[in-house]
Amino acid sequence: MFQELEGRHALITGAGAGIGAAIALQLAQAGCRLTLCGRSQGTLQAQVEALRVQVPDVAVLIAPMDVADEHAVQAAVQQAQARFGPVNILVNNAGQASSQPFAKTDAVLWQQMLNVNLTGTYHCIQAVLPGMLEAAKSGTPGRIVNIASTAGLKGYAYVSAYVAAKHGVVGLTKALALELARKGVTVNAICPGYTETDIVREAVQNIVSKTGKSEAEARQALAASNPQQRLVQPQEVAQSVLWLCAAGSNAINGQAIAIDGGELAG
């Protein structure tokens, strides 16, 4: 169904679990060669082993890095390009969320949210874009997919730094899409609502510790923002990424697509 993706080089950050792992599986099944990035070598290795159970012949490279570290990103991308050639698909999935009232959001927390969620996205695009553009000139289109959040499209209380960073990701997506529109590269953002990931599990524990609610009540409180009254599943986000990478989405550019069960519809 996605034969045009066979052999394309996809680099995914935050690839060890959750949404990143689901994206890796979808792209592996479409025939992409994968570079999996994250901070934990062990977590990435476990993900490779899980991938090979479902896609035994997947071509995959582990390139540990912290997206907030520009030099680490450059080194990882150089390693990836030496193995598989230019990156054709970049999925900026690495992210971090911390909850504090604004009055308790100090400069360290503020900068950490920007570093991981926004500047990390910038670092990765800067590193892969020259090679991606060269490949596009030769006929292999490029795709940049930034995993933002509904927090990039609306406000949420007690996560002001995270919301600011994710709004920045959406703004970067739109600006870069215009710059690259005639160069064979599309740039889009996926904006999931509360999704079954480690970030949400941490949010649940935070609610439990601060409010005394049960874990089930905390999960329901997060799911309540979704009109479908459930958490989004990582594979639902991954399938949207796969669609954006396919040939049929050539005209989809500069968009911030909410995967939220209708949360932003009202």
Score class of each variant (00 low, 15 high):
2 F>N: 14
2 F>I: 08
4 E>G: 14
5 L>Q: 08
7 G>N: 11
15 A>F: 05
18 G>V: 00
26 Q>W: 06
29 Q>V: 05
31 G>I: 04
33 R>P: 10
38 G>D: 02
41 Q>E: 14
41 Q>G: 06
41 Q>D: 05
43 T>D: 07
44 L>R: 08
51 L>C: 13
53 V>A: 14
55 V>A: 14
55 V>H: 12
59 A>D: 14
62 I>S: 14
64 P>V: 03
69 D>T: 00
69 D>E: 12
74 Q>C: 12
75 A>C: 11
79 Q>P: 12
81 Q>G: 10
81 Q>I: 02
86 P>K: 04
86 P>A: 12
90 L>F: 07
95 G>V: 02
95 G>H: 02
96 Q>N: 14
99 S>N: 10
100 Q>K: 14
101 P>D: 07
104 K>D: 15
104 K>W: 11
105 T>G: 08
109 L>C: 05
110 W>H: 12
110 W>N: 14
110 W>V: 06
113 M>D: 01
117 N>K: 03
118 L>M: 09
120 G>W: 01
121 T>H: 00
123 H>S: 07
124 C>E: 04
125 I>H: 06
126 Q>F: 06
126 Q>D: 04
127 A>M: 03
129 L>Y: 08
133 L>P: 09
134 E>L: 13
134 E>Q: 15
135 A>H: 01
136 A>P: 01
136 A>Q: 09
141 P>S: 10
144 I>K: 13
146 N>E: 10
147 I>S: 11
149 S>I: 04
152 G>E: 02
154 K>R: 15
156 Y>W: 07
159 V>Y: 01
161 A>D: 00
163 V>K: 07
165 A>P: 13
166 K>I: 01
168 G>H: 06
168 G>K: 12
170 V>P: 01
172 L>T: 14
176 L>W: 01
177 A>E: 04
178 L>E: 09
183 K>M: 03
184 G>E: 08
185 V>E: 13
186 T>G: 10
187 V>S: 12
190 I>C: 14
192 P>S: 07
193 G>S: 15
196 E>V: 06
197 T>F: 01
198 D>K: 07
200 V>W: 02
202 E>N: 15
202 E>Y: 12
202 E>M: 13
203 A>L: 12
204 V>G: 10
204 V>I: 14
207 I>Y: 03
208 V>S: 02
208 V>Y: 02
210 K>W: 03
210 K>V: 04
212 G>A: 09
217 E>C: 00
221 A>G: 11
223 A>I: 11
227 P>E: 05
234 P>C: 09
236 E>P: 06
239 Q>W: 00
240 S>P: 03
242 L>S: 10
244 L>Q: 03
245 C>D: 01
245 C>G: 08
252 I>N: 08
252 I>K: 05
255 Q>I: 01
257 I>C: 06
258 A>D: 10
259 I>Q: 13
259 I>D: 11
260 D>K: 13
266 G>C: 06
